[in-house]
């Protein structure tokens, strides 16, 4: 039997909003320690990995490892019925389940809703994500990053990210013209979510498709800050922490000049 009870249903709502426009169907791997979701967009350009450890749950029981093939649109419809402060319980049999139950309990306990969603067969390959030493880590406000990606999308379909010791520059150009946004490394980190910290081993200069970055920033409500990890020749990692009990990581390869 797999059963997981989340005190804050709003978190699951935000997680679905973070992945459903990028990955239609995803494999939710549940084991004794955590729920892990990994999926790619339909064109296999980007990858998202979500991890939510058992400690995030009020109650977590997973007698045998079970993989739930979830259609994220169906799951999102159910979660649209949930309030942020509802308790959400996920339940599934652990012998090749063909469905998953979701129970929503209102905070005052007067309303209980239960849904059964059919699981989908997904035969995507699970990819191994190698541990990588990155040349640069940029930690910044998630809202700021979302705003930069949105604003620069008006100038071009790609953003060039250049990191130096002092700052990180986002540039885009197209027929509208050229736009540069430069964030200076904050000297003092007083308010974490408003500062920009650049941890640089060596300078990087990479170009990424804004269409995907704007899909990644759907996770902005999950965390006040976002961390970008960059290396020449390696996919960009855009990471949003889920409190202390997990993360959502998006991976996107840099564009290469023909």
């Amino acid at each position: 039997m797999f059963e997981a009870k989340l005190q804050q249903g709003g978190l699951l709502k935000k997680i679905l909003e973070s992945v459903k426009d990028l990955v239609v169907d995803g494999l939710w791997d549940c084991d004794g320690a955590a729920i892990t979701l990994q999926g790619m967009d339909s064109s296999h350009v980007a990858l998202v990995e979500m991890l939510l450890r058992a400690e995030a749950f009020e109650h977590y029981r997973c007698d045998r490892n079970v993989t739930l093939g979830m259609n994220h649109n169906h799951l999102s419809k159910i979660l649209k019925c949930a309030n942020n402060d509802d308790i959400v319980i996920l339940k599934a049999a652990d012998q090749n389940p063909d469905s998953c139950s979701l129970i929503l309990e209102s905070k005052n306990g007067e309303k209980t809703s239960d849904f059964v969603v059919s699981l989908v067969r997904i035969d995507t390959d699970q990819l191994g994500i190698p541990e990588t030493e990155y040349s640069a880590h940029v930690k910044m406000s998630s809202g700021e990053f979302q705003r930069i990606c949105r604003d620069l999308s008006q100038f071009g379909d790609a953003v060039q990210i250049t990191c130096s010791k002092q700052d990180v520059k986002f540039s885009s150009s197209g027929e509208t013209g050229k736009a540069n946004i430069t964030l200076t490394h904050s000297a003092t980190v007083d308010k974490e979510e408003e500062s920009v910290t650049v941890d640089l081993k060596e300078p990087v200069d990479l170009t990424f498709a804004l269409r995907f970055l704007n899909l990644f920033t759907k996770a902005t409500p999950i965390s006040d800050t976002v961390t970008l990890s960059l290396s020449q020749e390696a996919p960009l990692v855009v990471e949003y922490k889920i409190g202390d009990s997990g993360h959502i990581r998006y991976f996107l390869a840099p564009k290469i000049q023909e």
């Binding site: 296999h44 350009v45 390959d125 191994g128």
Partner: peptide, 14 residues
């Protein structure tokens, strides 16, 4: 026009 590689060029099947 710059090319967009697939993520599968970088991560192997587990």
């Amino acid at each position: 026009k710059p090319k967009q590689p697939s993520i599968m060029n970088f991560f192997t099947k587990a």
